[in-house]
């Protein structure tokens, strides 16, 4: 126990745009702590000289030619959006500064 506390979980939740409080926060913090506690077993394994694997396949240089392809229609794009003001998708106002 003690890998993560509720403060850390709150911070991470803010990064992930999730809202957590009260019992739900406590519970999820305890679960994450348990899981991360389990993950600690990796620390026993020496890996200093091991290269990380981010792709299992040894593929490189997969490229496409610079050829234009059809786009979706504006109508299709706007129809997907929960709120729109043609020709735009709308969101609650974005404030550029946080100060």
């Amino acid at each position: 126990m003690g890998v993560v506390n509720t403060e850390t979980v709150k911070h991470v939740a803010a990064l992930a745009r999730l809202h957590l409080e009260g019992q739900a926060l406590e519970q999820i913090a305890a679960q994450l702590d348990q899981i991360l506690g389990y993950v600690q077993l990796l620390q026993k394994l020496p890996t200093d000289n091991v290269a990380p694997t981010s792709h299992v396949l040894a593929l490189t240089n997969v490229l496409r030619e610079d050829t234009p392809a059809a786009s979706l229609s504006q109508d299709t794009v706007l129809t997907l959006a929960p709120e729109r003001h043609p020709p735009f998708v709308t969101v609650p106002k974005v404030i550029e500064t946080s100060s």
Partner: peptide
């Protein structure tokens, strides 16, 4: 100023009608 976007075939073209040069890839569907 390539013809198409970095990761999909949509045109790179300034001044097109809003939301008319997108596809599932650049919209991140």
């Amino acid at each position: 100023q390539t013809k198409s976007k970095l990761f999909c075939g949509c045109l790179v073209n300034f001044g097109a009608a809003p939301n008319s040069q997108t596809c599932p890839v650049c919209l991140g569907l």
